[in-house]
Amino acid sequence: MPQSASSRPSWLPASEGGAELMGLKSQWDTGRLPDVIGLLARLILGVVLIWAGAAKVTQPAKSALAVRAFKILTYDVAGYVGYALPVVEILVGLLLVIGLFTRLSAALGGLMMLAFIFGISWAWAHGYSIDCGCFGGGGTIAASQTKYPLDILRDVGLVICAAWLVARPRTAYSLDHRLFG
């Protein structure tokens, strides 16, 4: 825009300062590097979600048991969550992998991860010895076999992926870009 120079705040140095800021801004908006970072975030979060969902979806009873082992929800509600969660994980994961409704899918994925972090912390804080059941399995295990810090660390990493995509849903090779421009 031709007026931009004159509308620049007077405290900015007249030379490159403003232009550099503008450059960073447009790099964030349309740059190739952030697009590729976004693509990676999308694929990591999406593939992990699909993997986690697929490991559980064929065994609903086991999945319900894994949710019940956290002792957060009531018996029946935990059952419904156990049955539904794998399906939701797979669908949100698929949306992320193809890059459709990226911001919304990432927000859902991120919220799920936050819920998982809460659940794992809850079990850890209460001294339960359980497998998180994140990728199948689940239920009571020996105290020496628990790996709460690792589970939480993994989920924090996935929350970061989700947060990036919510903040900047534009990614390389996304269906969003192809369909909606």
């Binding site: 979806v57 609903p60 009873a61 999945s63 319900a64 059952g79 419904y80 156990g82 049955y83 539904a84 794998p86 399906v87 939701v88 669908l91 949306l95 459709l100 409704f101 369909l179």
Partner: peptide, 25 residues
């Protein structure tokens, strides 16, 4: 329209999963 289709797939998937889960129980 695409959003509606995705949402419908999600809802049907969840309902079916819960029905199957309950019947397996």
């Amino acid at each position: 329209i695409i959003g509606a289709v995705v949402a419908a797939v999600l809802i049907v998937g969840v309902v079916v999963a819960i029905l199957i889960g309950n019947s397996s129980k």
